[in-house]
């Protein structure tokens, strides 16, 4: 009886997911199916092209770098926020989300102004005499990483603050009494207890960066295409919907495989704290 009503209650959500997630996916696959009977060839040809390989590699590299940058910046920030009084912590947790409240285009235009040849960043470096002539940051892979990191830092911090506030602070005190200094404590006691939070944050940032369109488009320019911008170019500029579909499907498969791998890792690490 109970089970039946549970199924009934889940039905709308189930149908919703079915329609809104899988129907578009099928729509993406259709162009490749119509095009040729030998559609496996489409993928092989796409993957053989060294240009496409570069794009795929760049997409993965930018996602990986962004994830690392966000993790390294986000962890200390998250620890600091999590260790404030509840009131301050709640306030900071909201403030940290501010970048996400602005429109993606506007946010990236701000970065264009900051990172440009005559931008704030170059001005600063010149004034500090660290460089003698303006350097090119805008429209490079670095610019994409910077813009993506800015966008995804709040997600990482939010994910981590949750895990950190759940830590038993006495474990750190116990480690200190046993002779662990601050750094040892961080790497041997705090971080190992945060694996779930860190990996969750990493999945979100990695998947988000890999599939983001606006940031690589505006900060990377046309010479630094990633898969998302390549899809747009194929479909909208060149009108080649078949190729766009191929890229989209490869992107989806890559994301899913990577997320499964991280999930698997998480479960393995999690086994150690059954019922904890």
């Amino acid at each position: 009886m109970r089970k039946r009503s549970a199924i009934l209650l889940l039905l709308p959500a189930f149908v919703g997911v079915l329609i809104f997630t899988f129907y578009p996916l099928i729509q993406i696959i259709i162009p490749t199916l119509n095009q040729s009977s030998d559609y496996g060839k489409l993928y092989l040809e796409f993957l053989k092209s060294s240009y496409n390989q570069t794009v795929i590699f760049r997409t993965l590299a930018i996602a990986l770098f962004t994830t690392l940058v966000v993790l390294v910046l986000g962890l200390p920030l998250a620890i600091w926020i999590a260790r404030q009084d509840e009131k301050v912590r709640k306030l900071l947790s909201v403030i940290i989300l501010f970048p996400m409240l602005t429109n993606a285009v506007i946010r990236n235009f701000a970065w264009i102004i900051i990172l440009g040849k005559n931008g704030v960043f170059n001005d600063l470096l010149l004034k500090l005499h660290l460089i003698s002539a303006p350097i090119t940051i805008l429209y490079t892979n670095a610019a994409i990483v910077i813009g993506s990191a800015y966008l995804f830092l709040p997600i990482m911090v939010t994910s981590l603050v949750g895990s950190i506030t759940e830590l038993n602070i006495e474990t750190e005190e116990a480690a200190a009494v046993l002779g662990a200094g601050a750094m040892t404590n961080l790497f041997k006691v705090i971080i190992p207890q945060l694996t779930t939070g860190i990996l969750t944050g990493c999945i979100l940032v990695f998947a988000g960066t890999m599939t983001a369109y606006t940031t690589p488009q505006l900060l990377g320019g046309n010479r630094h295409l990633v898969m998302a911008t390549l899809i747009y170019q194929q479909a909208m500029t060149l009108g080649d919907w078949t190729n766009a579909s191929v890229v989209a499907i490869i992107l989806i498969i890559l994301s899913v495989v990577i997320m499964f791998a991280i999930n698997k890792l998480m479960k393995k690490l999690d086994r150690r704290k059954v019922n904890a």
Partner: peptide, 8 residues
């Protein structure tokens, strides 16, 4: 009081 064992 909470034992504070390292769960990992």
């Amino acid at each position: 009081q909470s034992y504070a064992l390292f769960p990992h």
